[in-house]
């Protein structure tokens, strides 16, 4: 990064660290923090939306919708996150590739499962082999967003369901007697009032979501945990910046990062709840 970095062996301690902490590998490490933030800001609204839809479906008149949404909320909430994160990306990926294989290469009659191999034709791969690595990275990231949304949507569904039921029944009856449609009851009575009941549950979910982001590591995404372990490991002089085992410092930096993230979230959530709830 700096001009004096060409020969790290002759640098003073300060210069050595200024070079070390700005080398290409560290820049990738810093970027991976951005990835966590990005994941949070994409996943949270999607999961909230999915949860809201599922909660409305649980309260719907249609038996099919009710069964489906209840099954979704209960099954997903009952399965450990980690199992889901291992299961969904592989299944979705193979499902998409299998479907694409059937559409694009109908002339191949061999099964896609050959022994332990999963083989689809070149044109059916997603992303394609010829795509640059960043497209593969984005694809992996989208699968992760999808998994997080499914899991946290189920929790949000339960929160919203409870919040909607907390809106006083008499108001809904009043709405009905005024001749309001279901849609009107939702948009002008339930939705505006449910937030005050949903907020504590949603803020809990937000915190849990933050704390589960290191699960990205499980999906093979080069996230903060991967880089912390990779950078912290002891390095021989085959590297420009040899050093002993520094993993403890890198993991400490993750600890500080997550504490800051949850602390800032807490401050913001506290401000919101102060506006909504009166002190007793």
């Amino acid at each position: 990064m700096f001009e004096y970095c060409t020969d790290p062996d002759v640098l003073s301690t300060f210069e050595w660290f200024s070079c070390y902490l700005t080398n290409g590998k560290h820049l990738l490490f810093y970027k991976s923090f951005g990835l966590i933030i990005l994941l949070l800001f994409i996943t949270a609204p999607l999961a909230a939306l999915l949860g809201l839809l599922a909660a409305v479906a649980i309260k719907s008149k249609s038996l099919l919708l009710r069964l489906f949404s209840k099954a979704y909320a209960n099954i997903v909430r009952g399965i450990p996150d980690i199992i889901f994160f291992l299961f969904i990306p592989i299944t979705i990926d193979q499902l998409i590739e299998f479907t694409r294989h059937k559409i694009k290469c109908p002339e191949i009659v061999d099964s896609v499962w050959q022994g332990s191999d999963f083989v689809v034709c070149g044109a059916a791969k997603l992303p394609l082999n010829s795509d640059p690595q960043w497209i593969h990275d984005i694809y992996g990231f989208l699968l992760a967003v999808f998994s997080f949304t499914i899991v946290y949507g189920a929790f949000a569904a339960n929160t919203f369901y409870g919040a909607m039921n907390s809106v006083p029944q008499s108001q809904i009856e009043t709405g009905k007697s005024f001749g309001m449609s279901r849609k009107q009851i939702y948009t002008s009575i339930i939705f505006p009032q449910m937030w005050r009941y949903a907020l504590p549950g949603l803020s809990n979910l937000w915190m849990l979501l933050i704390k589960s982001t290191p699960l990205l590591f499980l999906l093979g995404i080069q996230d903060v945990v991967y880089w912390a372990r990779e950078l912290g490991g002891s390095k021989t002089s085959i590297f420009h910046y040899p050093h002993p085992d520094w993993r403890v410092w890198y993991f400490l930096s993750l600890l500080v990062f997550y504490l800051l993230l949850t602390k800032i979230s807490e401050l913001i959530l506290n401000r919101i709840s102060k506006k909504i709830y009166l002190p007793i």
Binding site: I96, T99, R100, I103, G122, A123, L126, L128, N129, S130, D131
Partner: peptide, 14 residues
């Protein structure tokens, strides 16, 4: 888009 997306060339080995 995920289903109709078409390759540029298929000679890349990962």
């Amino acid at each position: 888009l995920a289903f109709i997306y078409v390759p540029a060339n298929a000679d890349t080995v990962r």
